[in-house]
């Protein structure tokens, strides 16, 4: 028994050392359940590389770990606002994806995003929106408004779930009261707080897992990510995704190479690889969100090509916006309101 333990220790430590020495390696640090195994297999076969995937569950965790150093990751996939943070904090390596061969496939609207002007660091992974989900069996009215969750109709009171994300919920509330996310305008913040405090008794939960819970009837409306709502709609067709006309959030996760990466060349290959439409389609098909690569639709399942939850209808295009990473002062206000809301 003890011998076994010693053996296992040695073996495990040995294995981990082996990983550092070998060169045809790639260490991907990504959101959980977000990386298509088919994509990885294809990349491994094509370039004879061994890819190790490690998961995180939030941008803050990823940032904290990368900032601390000594992590062994090559590529990380933060959300747009955090891409900016990674760049500003000097954690990202300028690998110039804009000069890579497959950059021509990147859709025009994603070529020069505010969070990474000129795409000198990052490559689109997936993008989506935060909007409202409504079970149209329960509520028949207009679903393209955030009043579904902030000032709910009678039918939905006590049946609402909010994504437990401070930034998304407060940002949407600020848009709803006619202000902007990350504002430090106290009048607007106060309005948003009062709105949330008044709405809270009508919420049943602030929780993840919509894809599974909403079809089961644990709640009938939600503020949530579009891809999850789309999946829930596949299980129960009456579940629809609405784009709040008062303003909703667009988010995008982007792959970037870290400054202390050990396998920079392989990492660059990977960035180029995922800009290929066929490969980008693999990512989308797995995670059920749109990617930023034109021409990839051709390789996606048919039902995804037309789903209104994934492809923003023209009439709502203007209401969407990227939420920035808030300043320290704004975050302080956010946290104070959030703490009061969930005390």
């Amino acid at each position: 028994m003890k011998m076994n333990v010693v053996f296992v220790t040695v073996a495990v430590i040995g294995l981990c050392f082996a990983g550092v020495v070998h060169s045809s390696e790639l260490n991907l640090y990504n959101w959980g359940n977000y990386t298509s195994p088919d994509l990885i297999k294809k990349f491994e076969a094509q370039y004879d590389v061994n890819v190790t995937i490690t998961d995180y569950d939030s941008n803050t965790t990823a940032l904290a770990k990368v900032k601390a150093g000594g992590h062994g990751f090559d590529i990380v996939v933060p959300s747009a606002n955090y891409v900016k943070v990674f760049i500003e904090e000097g954690l990202a390596l300028e690998v110039r994806p804009d000069q890579m061969e497959n950059f021509k496939h990147v859709a025009p609207q994603w070529r020069n995003p505010s969070f990474d002007p000129g795409r000198r660091y990052s490559v689109p992974w997936l993008w989506g929106t935060v909007g409202v989900a409504v079970d149209t069996d329960v509520y028949k009215g207009d679903i393209n408004t955030a009043s579904i969750v902030f000032d709910p109709p009678e039918e939905l009171a006590g049946k609402i779930n909010m994504a437990p994300e401070m930034g998304d919920v407060l940002g949407m509330a600020l848009k709803y009261v006619g202000s902007e996310p990350c504002t430090t305008d106290k009048v607007a913040l106060k309005k948003a707080r009062d709105l949330l405090m008044a709405a809270k008794p009508k919420w049943v939960s602030m929780d993840y897992g919509l894809t599974e819970k909403m079809p089961r009837g644990d709640f009938s409306a939600a503020l949530y990510w579009n891809g999850a709502v789309y999946r829930a709609g596949l299980a129960k067709p009456s579940i629809k995704f609405g784009y709040p006309r008062e303003g909703y959030e667009i988010w995008m996760d982007n792959a970037l190479v870290l400054k202390d990466a050990k396998n920079v060349e392989t990492a660059k290959l990977f960035l180029n690889f995922i800009m290929d439409p066929e490969n980008a389609a693999l990512i989308s098909t797995f995670a059920r969100y749109a990617n930023g690569i034109s021409g990839s639709e051709a390789f996606m399942p048919d039902e995804m090509k037309t789903a209104s939850a994934i492809n923003i209808p023209d009439e709502f295009k203007d209401a969407g916006m990227f939420f920035p990473a808030c300043s320290k002062e704004a975050t302080e206000y956010y946290t104070a309101i959030w703490t009061e809301l969930t005390k």
Partner: peptide, 25 residues
């Protein structure tokens, strides 16, 4: 574990934590 793990050191709980936000299969 989530904070201490290095690349490729996923345990079952951290693997699940990563899925928590999306879908747990």
């Amino acid at each position: 574990t989530e904070f201490v793990k290095s690349s490729g050191q996923e345990t079952l709980p951290t693997y699940m934590l990563g899925q928590l936000r999306r879908v747990i299969t």
